[in-house]
Nucleic acid binder design. Structure first.
Length: 604
RNA sequence: GGGGCUGUAGCUCAGCCGGAUAGAGCGACGGUUUCCUAAACCGUAGGUCGUGGGUUCGAGUCCCGCCAGCCCCGCCA
C-alpha cells in the first residue's frame, strides 16, 4: 500500500494548500510546507487513515479545526482521483478527517499484491539511489576465539541475521561480518598459559578440544588477574603476536581453527551465514589510524599512552574522557581496531568495502564505547557525507527471576545447551500432543517438527521482544502454543497448508474475479496490504520486533477469518476469492518468517 | 561524581512524526467443536502510564527536577 499512501499524501497536500492559502503562504515563507499529517487510523471504526493536519492550523487561522477540516474535505471532493480511492471523508472528534478506502481500490491493491512475488516491497534500486557501492555492513554475533558461544551471543546473532535478511531482501548488498575476538590481551594470556601447561595445543591441530580450551582460558584469566609476572608475559605475547612472530602466529592460527569449527556447528543449526573477519584482519591498518589521528591533530600523549579526548563526554573528574588508541607498551586495543574497521568499511574498494551504512549489533553495555568511537571517526573525517553508522543495542538475557541467566550451578549457559533444551522441550510437547490426539507420526517427522519449533521459538522470542531493555528468557513462554509466539504463527501457516491439501491444491487461481462480502475478509485484506510498509519500517528503524508484531496480528486476523469463513465449502466466486486470500496470507507469513530467519512447516 | 538505558494491567511486553475512550498476550473467570488441524475463536474482569512541574489546541510520547532499577566510565573486549 506504499504507493497508495504516497498518492494520498500528494492529494492531501494539494487540498490542504488550496483550503488554507494564507497558512500555506506563511509556511512557504519560512521554507516549509503544510503537513496534512496522514497516518493509519488509530481504530478500525475510523476507517483506514486519519488526517490530523487541520488541528494545528486552528490557532494560526483563528478558525475552528472542524471548519478547517471541512474546507479540506471540500477540496478533496473536487478531485476525481481521490474519490476513486476513498469514500467521502468523515470529520470526527475535534477535527480529524477519517478516510476509508473504496472496495474497488482495496481489490485493485490486493490484485497487484497477488501478482507480485515481492508482495509489494520495492527493490532499493527503484526507491532511491544509494551512494558508495550501495553495500551495508552488518557486524554481528562476534564471539571470542577460545571461548564457547553462550547466551550473550544469542541476541546479537539472531537480531543481526534478521536485519541482514531484511536489507538483502530490499536489494542491498549486505556484508555480514563476524568480528570475532581473535586478537588482543586475552590471546596473549591464553598462549602464555598454554606454553606452560599444554604446549602441544600450540603446535598440533586438534590436540585439545574447545571444552579444554575454555577451561585453560579460565585458568589463564585467573592467573592474569592474580600474577603480575604472568600479566607482563601475556602482554609481551600480545606484542609478539601483533608484530608477526611466526611461532606465536602459528599457535594463534591453530586456536582459531579449533574455535571456528565449533562456532560453525551453532551457525549451521541456526541457519546463519557469516563472513568471518576477525579483529586481526585490521592489524595492517592500525598504524594508519594512529597516523591519521596524529595528522588531524586529534592524538594526544597522556601518561605515555596515545589518546583522543572526547568532546561532550567527561570522565570521573569532570574532564574530557580519553579514549586510548595506543597503550604505553605500544600495544593496540579494541578502540583502535574498531576505528580501523570503520575506516576500512567506508573506504572504497579495493582498500575497503565502500559501504554506505554500518550497523553494529552488540549489547547495550557498549553504547558508551561506540558513541566514543563514532565521534572520533567523525572528527577524523572517516565517515563520508552519505555514510550512516549505527549501534543497535540490546539488553541482557535474564532468567525468569530477573537475574542474569545462569545454570543452577551458577555458570554461564552454553548456547548449544540452550538450543538443545529448546528442541527437546518442543519434542516432548509434540509427543504428548500426538498421544492425546491419537496421531501416528514417523520419527523423522517428530525430529523435524521439534527441531523447527524449538529453534523458531528461541529466535522468535528474542526478536519479538527486541528492545534496548533486558530480555527475560523463558522456555515455557516461548514454546507456548498461544500468544505472540513462534508456534502460534507456524500454526496459522499449517492451517492454510491444510486447506491446500484438502482441495485448494492449485492455489494458482484466477484473480480477476475477486468477490468479497464479509467483514472478516476485508480485515484480512487490509492487514495483508500493510506488509510493504512494515518492511520499510524495519529497514529504517532496525527493529525486527515491528515485523514480529505485524506477523502476529496477521495471524490473529487470519485465525478469525478461518474460524468463521468457510473456504473450500464456499460457492464460486467466493471460494476462489477466499483461496486467493489464503494464498497471500501464507506467502506473507512465510516471507516474514524467512526474514526473521525462521523456517516454516506444512504440518505440525 | 559523570554518562547511558529503563520504569505502562497480577506477569511479559506493544504503543510510529505528540492526536480521538492507553493496547496485546499470558494468567483468572465464563462461553464456542456434525465443518478446511479447537495448537483455534468469542466474551468478562483488571490502569494515579514511577513521581512533581513545564511546553502545547492536545502529552504515555517532547523539556526540566526528583525517586527506583540496570549498565558503562585510562591502558580488558
Amino acid at each position: 500500500m506504499l504507493r497508495l499512501v504516497k498518492t494520498l499524501q500528494i492529494q492531501l497536500q494539494s487540498a490542504l494548500e488550496k483550503a488554507c492559502p494564507e497558512a500555506a503562504k506563511i509556511a512557504h515563507a519560512s521554507d516549509t510546507t503544510l503537513n496534512p499529517q496522514l497516518g493509519p487510523a488509530s481504530k478500525p471504526e475510523f476507517g483506514d487513515f486519519q488526517v490530523n493536519g487541520a488541528l494545528p492550523l486552528a490557532k494560526l487561522l483563528k478558525q475552528s479545526p472542524r471548519h478547517i477540516a471541512l474546507a479540506i474535505v471540500e477540496q478533496l471532493q473536487t478531485n476525481k482521483d481521490f474519490s476513486s480511492l476513498c469514500q467521502p471523508p468523515k470529520i470526527a472528534g475535534p477535527g480529524f478527517i477519517n478516510l476509508t478506502l473504496t472496495t474497488k481500490c482495496l481489490k485493485e491493491e490486493l490484485r497487484i499484491q497477488l501478482k507480485d512475488q515481492r508482495l509489494g516491497v520495492p527493490l532499493v534500486d527503484s526507491a532511491k539511489p544509494v551512494q558508495g557501492n550501495g553495500s551495508v555492513v552488518v557486524d554481528f554475533s562476534s564471539p571470542n576465539i577460545a571461548k564457547e558461544m553462550h547466551v550473550g551471543h544469542l541476541r546479537s546473532t539472531i537480531i543481526g541475521d534478521s536485519l541482514a535478511r531484511v536489507l538483502e531482501f530490499r536489494g542491498y548488498s549486505v556484508l555480514r561480518l563476524n568480528h570475532v575476538g581473535d586478537w588482543g590481551t586475552q590471546f596473549g594470556m591464553l598462549i602464555t598459559h598454554l606454553k606452560l601447561v599444554a604446549p602441544e595445543a600450540l603446535t598440533k591441530a586438534n590436540a585439545i578440544d574447545l571444552g579444554d580450551l575454555v577451561h585453560f582460558y579460565r585458568e589463564a584469566k585467573k592467573r592474569f588477574d592474580e600474577d603480575i609476572a604472568f600479566k607482563t608475559a601475556a602482554r609481551q605475547e600480545v606484542i609478539k603476536l601483533q608484530s608477526g612472530d611466526p611461532l606465536t602466529i602459528k599457535a594463534w592460527k591453530l586456536l582459531c581453527d579449533q574455535s571456528r569449527k565449533e562456532f560453525q556447528q551453532i551457525y549451521n543449526q541456526l541457519d546463519i551465514r557469516l563472513t568471518e573477519r576477525g579483529e586481526s584482519f585490521y592489524n595492517p591498518y592500525l598504524k594508519q589510524v594512529i597516523d591519521d589521528l596524529d595528522s588531524s591533530k586529534l592524538l594526544v600523549n597522556d601518561d605515555e599512552a596515545k589518546c583522543v579526548f572526547l568532546e561532550n563526554i567527561s570522565g570521573k573528574d569532570g574532564k574530557p574522557l580519553p579514549m586510548i588508541i595506543q597503550k604505553k607498551d605500544g600495544g593496540f586495543n579494541y578502540a583502535t581496531t574498531d576505528l580501523a574497521a570503520i575506516r576500512y568499511r567506508f573506504n572504497p574498494s579495493p582498500e575497503g568495502d565502500g559501504a554506505h551504512r554500518l550497523i553494529y549489533v552488540t549489547d547495550a553495555g557498549q553504547a558508551n564505547h561506540f558513541a566514543g568511537v563514532f565521534q572520533i571517526a567523525k572528527r577524523a573525517n572517516w565517515i563520508p557525507d552519505y555514510g550512516r553508522i549505527e549501534h543497535v543495542p540490546f539488553g541482557l538475557v535474564q532468567g525468569e527471576d530477573g537475574k542474569k541467566l545462569k545454570t543452577r550451578s551458577g555458570e554461564t549457559i552454553r548456547l548449544r545447551d540452550l538450543l538443545k533444551e529448546a528442541v527437546s522441550r518442543a519434542e516432548s510437547d509434540l509427543r504428548l500432543r500426538l498421544k492425546e490426539e491419537g496421531r501416528n507420526e514417523s520419527e523423522s517427522f517428530i525430529m523435524k517438527v521439534s527441531n523447527t519449533i524449538g529453534i523458531a521459538a528461541v529466535k522468535y522470542a528474542d526478536l519479538s521482544q527486541n528492545r534496548k531493555t533486558n530480555y527475560q528468557f523463558s522456555f515455557d513462554r516461548m514454546l507456548a502454543l498461544q500468544g505472540n509466539t513462534a508456534p502460534y504463527l507456524l500454526y496459522a501457516l499449517v492451517r492454510i497448508a491444510g486447506i491446500t491439501r484438502k482441495g485448494g491444491g492449485d492455489l494458482d487461481i484466477a484473480i480477476e474475479n475477486l468477490d468479497f462480502n464479509e467483514l472478516k475478509e476485508w480485515s484480512l485484506i487490509r492487514e495483508l496490504l500493510k506488509f510493504d510498509e512494515v518492511i520499510l519500517e524495519v529497514e529504517e528503524g532496525l527493529l525486527p520486533s515491528r515485523l514480529c508484531t505485524y506477523l502476529f496480528e496477521l495471524s490473529q486476523v487470519f485465525n478469525r477469518f478461518y474460524d468463521q469463513i468457510p473456504v473450500l465449502k464456499a460457492n464460486e466466486p467466493q471460494r476462489s476469492s477466499r483461496l486467493a486470500l489464503c494464498r497471500l496470507t501464507a506467502q506473507t507469513l512465510k516471507m516474514g518468517l524467512t526474514l526473521l530467519g525462521i523456517p516454516t512447516l506444512e504440518r505440525m
